[in-house]
Amino acid sequence: MAKKELIKLKINGKEREVAAEPRLLLVHFIREQLGLTGTHVGCDTSNCGACTVLLNGKTVKSCTMFAVQADGAEIMTVEGLPSNGALHPLQEGFKEEHGLQCGFCTPGMLISSYALLKKNPNPTEAEIRWGISGNLCRCTGYQNIVKAVQFASKKMAQGGK
């Protein structure tokens, strides 16, 4: 076994410091070392996006990155969606518009949608579809996810968050 590397990072606002083998994938680090199981694994081949997290403000697939690469980074997972005690407008939108069924893709979808709205607060339907094109969903057919993002976009424009 290769020697363990000390990984210091900030996840959902909290500083964490854990040693890990260099080959440990970031998604396993998050799920198993840090105990945040909202981030999922759906494919192994960097296709499905269920493992999407925000790394220094950008979406990445945490199954296609080593934890050691995230040393010093700031990460946000679904558990860290800013909420002030209530649901984030995106979470609210997914519930209101029935943007989830089995819920397995949902954390990754939320993170991709969050990043999309940060960059483009008022996206068109086409822009939303492109924005979540790295996230697969087997249940919803995406239509209600699009509506959920539109719901959040409107709500945030009205000062929701």
């Binding site: 909202g38 999922h40 694994v41 649901l87 997914f94 819920g103 949902t106 939320l110």
Partner: peptide, 15 residues
């Protein structure tokens, strides 16, 4: 059922 899934608090078998 949505609230737990939306907050990453579902409990799937790998969890």
């Amino acid at each position: 059922e949505d609230s737990r899934f939306l907050q990453g608090r579902g409990n799937y078998v790998d969890d």
